[in-house]
Amino acid sequence: MSRFVEPALAIVLAIVWISPLVFAAWAAFHDVSDAVNFRLMAPLTFDNFRTAWEGAPWLRYFLNTFLLVTLILAGQFLLCTLAGFAFAQMEFRGRDTVFILVLLQLFILPEVLIVENYRVAASLGLLDSLLGIGSPYMASAFGIFLMRQAFKSVPKDLDEAARIEGCSTLGVLWRVYVPAAHPTYLAYALVSVSTHWNNFLWPLIVTNSESARPLTVGLSLFGAPENGVDISVISAATLMVVGPLLLLFLLFQRQFAQAFLTAGVK
């Protein structure tokens, strides 16, 4: 008896868990009056997607989000590689004190500092730009920590061999450490991209025109009640926004889970 109870519970929970997405997908392909009355046999329609697509400059938003996550990732790779390398393999006075300062930033969340970060961004002329959205996240303490751990596990012999061959410090970093930390980079990339693809509050504050606005902010404006779009159209727009990331996730599910683990557990 109890052999069947737990699998049944597990599957029921799974169905409950996926149902908001399933309902939205179903509603997106049906006329709103059919959707809200649950006419299961109602005809399919693509009108909601058409209305949603014409209702906002989505292409621009997609492009902005794509450029934004690329920009942030590039900045993070550069800054965290250099700093992580210094913390892992260079010995000098003051290093450990600075490392503790960096770790503190794990708790000073950029989300909490919106008020003053806005002033900083304003005084640097970064408002309403992709650079303005991305800058606070580039020197991520999390990323520095992650790269430090990855570089620490690189065997010292490789390092010394490269130096004997005449490599400079940066040469050793580029030829030995960066290739060795390849899996960590991949994991970090997946975590970073999915975090910033989904980020909302800071982009909302910094942007005030569609020129830099990412998808999440665009979606929230599109769905706002004063915009008067119905629930089927909102569902269609939501699916359009999450579609690419969702597809990527379903294709690379294993890597995604592995990435969150590498990033979180190490």
């Binding site: 550069l78 800054l79 965290c80 250099l82 700093a83 390398f85 210094a86 913390f87 260079m90 010995e91 000098f92 006075r93 290093r95 600075v98 300062l101 960096v102 930033q105 000073i108 950029p110 500092l113 003053e116 970060n117 002033r119 900083v120 640097l124 800058s135 606070p136 580039m138 020197a139 303490a141 520095i144 410090t169």
Partner: peptide, 26 residues
């Protein structure tokens, strides 16, 4: 080594100071 170390750290430290430490203080 110390100079190299600080040079490697400096880009990240500048960004952290501008977008984390200074705003906290401010």
């Amino acid at each position: 080594r110390a100079i190299h170390g600080w040079l490697l750290l400096s880009p990240a430290l500048v960004m952290l100071s501008v977008f984390a430490f200074y705003p906290s203080f401010a």
